[in-house]
Nucleic acid binder design. Structure first.
Lengths: 226, 226
DNA sequence: TACGTGCCGATACAGTGTATCGATCAATGC
DNA sequence: GCATTGATCGATACACTGTATCGGCACGTA
């Protein structure tokens, strides 16, 4: 077969100059699309058109890559507003929104200390906007809000995934979980819980998040201006 | 070589009757000793003296094993006390204590919906003790406390691990982290943060946890008795 | 041109979760 | 009592993981 008849080999991904940013962006793209378990050094490397070991010039371990991903996400989390209440609320809401856009964040947030530049810049932005607050109150306030957000977001994303996993539509979810809870409650072993689940008002995710956040901010207000 | 000269083979671990409880207890023992990454189906099976695939008669996947571990841990989390404030505080404190005894809990809490019998029994115990509270307030209150605890405990355990990992003593930790922060702050890019870290009072883990919890409970109080 | 040197990445290794399917054993039918 | 069937169990295998190793290559220097 002559050259002319043979098709050219497909374009290889050009060995573009590598750097941490490109690596992290690629990993985030994979994680956004298919979750954290889709992020392996081999897959990231393949997507970049390089061998797996190439990445080890830029990171020392996979954990470092995950740290870099989280720090990159922190770049999207910026509090705005005036006054400590607005600032903390906006910190919480924008963290939550980042986790909605990058569900894998829910798996990583709070899992390791965040000391990267964007995380620190985020802390700086928050603290700088709390300038009216007593210096000794700043850290506890921010820590409490962050703790609440991390936990709330984890539960929210976990619930979302469970729904999604039980068949793509919400029909099956109710078909699978509803009966289980019905049967469980029917045993009579959880009467108080059954009553609450059956009779109390059910808030959606947004309202649940905001209500908890309001609790917290109200409580902070009571202490800060005591 | 005659039989008499040949040593008997070493005692095999007797193929003790298997059940989920033994499997879960073994997995928890491994996780307590060496962390979650020490829990592999092979290691659990080996510790039980059986082949890996044997476990699949009792669980459908590793995730199910982790779910069972979390549910087993919930058996140790029981709120006590009278009045919603005492109950919620005790829920928070006993959850935190369980995570101190089983650090791997910090990795799993909030990661998947908890619908196991012990988790439900825990919910039942909490809700049953909140009988004075308006029915529509119960879930938001409990959800908020749980969210806070999950986040707070994750951060606390993460910090503890970081210290422990940077050399067994605390010397190296300060030798490694202190200078990094010093250098970072010395750049002048995080002035407000630097001021707080350097000049504000530093609470230990216990006080930080309780302070955040107090914020939250105060805020709940404001709403519940409005 | 010859030599030393540093680095890059192919290969290899030990480990993972789990699908597969042949061997084994109990129960059943004659 | 024996043959056959059926179910069950677990050894083997597979695809994949993170990362250590080290041969070979390119490059800078003598």
């Amino acid at each position: 077969m002559l050259v002319w008849e043979r098709p050219e080999p497909p374009d290889r991904p050009v060995p573009a100059p590598l750097n941490r940013e490109r690596i992290v962006r690629t990993a985030i793209r994979l994680a956004d699309a298919d979750g954290l378990e889709a992020v392996s050094l081999r897959k990231v490397a393949t997507a970049l058109g390089v061998g797996p070991m190439r990445l080890y010039s830029y990171i020392a371990s996979k954990e470092e890559l995950l740290d870099l991903m989280v720090d990159a996400a922190y770049a999207e989390i910026r509090p705005v507003g005036d006054g400590w209440r607005e600032v903390l609320r906006s910190l919480a809401e924008s963290t939550r929104q980042a986790a909605h856009e990058h569900e894998w964040l829910a798996d990583l947030l709070g899992g390791r200390p965040q000391l990267g530049p964007h995380a620190l810049a985020n802390g700086e932005a928050v603290v700088a906007r709390l300038d009216g607050v007593d210096l000794d109150d700043v850290m506890p306030m921010v820590a409490a809000v962050n703790a609440y957000v991390i936990g709330a977001v984890r539960r929210e994303i976990a619930a979302r995934r469970a729904e999604r996993a039980s068949g793509m539509d919400e029909r099956r979810w109710q078909a699978a979980l509803g009966p289980y809870l019905e049967r469980t409650f029917a045993t009579g072993r959880f009467p108080a819980l059954a009553t609450v689940v059956r009779d109390a008002a059910h808030l959606d995710a947004d309202h649940t998040f905001r209500m908890g956040l309001d609790f917290l901010l109200d409580g902070i207000e009571a202490r800060v201006s005591r």
